[in-house]
């Protein structure tokens, strides 16, 4: 495999692999989050399991962080290389005549998602790390010891309409990113199935339903806290 991952096609392949990983991750993340809409207890149980299980925390979480960081860094590196491949721009370029807005603006939807992730990490991930590994409180209980803290923390975060608005915008951009990215990942690994009508429809359904699910969770807690 020497030289494969430094070739343009090898990099595409690596980009697609990290994309597949993130596509699966989003499903798992939404599956946990959506339970908060109909059962606070179930959401608490699942959150506690995900937050304290050693395999998830020390096995899968580092892989996830690597996948996210890799996808962003490689995305920006490739964008820079691609920009450099056209040193003089067209005076008039009609990109809309031959390609979708989503496909031409992956780096911009990606940048919005990156900004969202920073906010999301500040909101949830960093406080979690602080509580569990700095303060050493692995109990997952509220300060008064009456039940789990996860559901209350979730509701508290979605009180602010500005934060909910930012989340909704980010998820719309995630949907646009996925509308191109889902089938594009198949093409990058050389899988023809990504270009079949069925797979295109699955891609469309996934790209709309998954971000919509996250939006439903954010709005539900905003209006029901």
């Amino acid at each position: 495999m020497s030289g494969y991952f430094t070739s343009s096609i090898g990099r595409k392949f690596a980009m697609a692999l990290s994309a597949f990983f993130l596509i699966i991750f989003l499903v798992i993340h939404l599956a946990v989050n959506i339970t908060s809409v109909f059962s606070a207890d179930l959401f608490n149980e699942l959150s506690h399991f995900m937050g304290t299980n050693p395999l998830i925390q020390f096995g899968l979480q580092p892989v996830l962080i690597f996948g996210v960081v890799f996808h962003f860094v490689m995305g920006f590196v490739l964008e820079q290389k691609n920009k450099a491949a056209r040193n003089i721009k067209y005076v008039r370029n009609n990109g809309a005549a031959n390609s979708s807005w989503m496909s031409r603006n992956m780096v911009y939807s990606g940048l919005v998602i990156l900004a969202f992730l920073i906010l999301h990490f500040i909101d949830f991930w960093i406080p979690e790390l602080n509580t569990k590994y700095v303060q050493g409180d692995m109990s997952g209980l509220l300060a008064d010891g009456e039940g789990f803290r996860y559901f209350e923390e979730l509701q508290h975060k979605f009180v602010s309409p500005i934060r909910v608005g930012a989340y909704v915008v980010a998820f719309i951009l995630l949907a646009l990113h996925l509308l191109h990215g889902f089938t594009s990942a198949f093409q990058s690994v050389g899988a023809t199935m990504g270009r079949t009508k069925a797979m295109k429809n699955i891609g469309k359904a996934y790209s709309i339903l998954i971000p919509l699910g996250f939006i439903v969770v954010a709005l539900f807690h905003h209006f029901n806290h």
């Binding site: 343009s8 290389k81 691609n82 920009k83 031959n98 390609s99 496909s103 031409r104 594009s184």
Partner: peptide
């Protein structure tokens, strides 16, 4: 020095 493909499909159309 050609760029990398991002599967926009513009090439196929044109």
């Amino acid at each position: 020095g050609f760029g990398n493909c991002t599967n926009t499909g513009a090439c196929e159309v044109e």
